[in-house]
Write a protein that binds this DNA or RNA. Structure first.
Lengths: 100, 100
DNA sequence: CGTGTAAGGAATTCTGACACG
DNA sequence: CGTGTAAGGAATTCTGACACG
């Protein structure tokens, strides 16, 4: 939907400024698969605003001492969470529909 | 409002890919003040999605043979156009308000 | 006027590795 | 595990200028 939010257009230097995270940290979180930047032909990483938001969330969790492995799981469920919620809601609707 | 749309985050290389315009053209349109990118500390130009949209409009006009000077005027009025429209509408409202 | 290009310098980004813990 | 750093190479971006028209 929000095409701008997910378009990968920023270099790692900009992401560093926007998030305050070091280049090392940003690359490491990718290695740990918490974010998936794209690459230019040459190989330079490109990030989206969405990635920046995720990195900000990661930074918060890390400050709390949460390990990257746990954070990855959280990120997945917070994404699938919406989906799961919708499915449950769908089932509820179907339920009431039947009893109506 | 749309914070992502106006945030200056892209390097000229990305803008080149997104618009198809040459680096030379992108820099020239800045020199002619059709766009106003920001600069990093070092001096690298940074563009927003909004700038990319403007460049696309510029490219269309240029293909029609419109000169940069004319395009700049068009861009200004198309921006102030909305404002002007609002002002007129405001006056009309005031008018009918009075005659009510 | 608008755009291409060669020129030289400066800063960016990349990867793999060693370090600490 | 998470992050810092030094290392060397490769690609990016910058400016001022000459060229064509």
């Amino acid at each position: 939907m929000a095409s701008y939010k997910h378009k990968k257009v920023m270099s790692i230097g900009i992401v560093n400024e926007l998030t305050g995270l070091s280049l090392r940290q940003i690359r490491y979180y990718e290695e740990r698969r918490l974010i998936q930047p794209e690459r230019t032909k040459r190989g330079t990483r490109k990030y989206s605003f969405s990635d920046v938001e995720t990195l900000l969330q990661i930074a918060d969790k890390r400050e709390e001492g949460v390990q990257t492995y746990e954070i990855r799981k959280d990120l997945q469920t917070s994404t699938k969470g919406n989906l799961k919620e919708k499915m449950i809601r769908g089932q509820l609707n179907a339920h009431f529909q039947m009893n109506k």
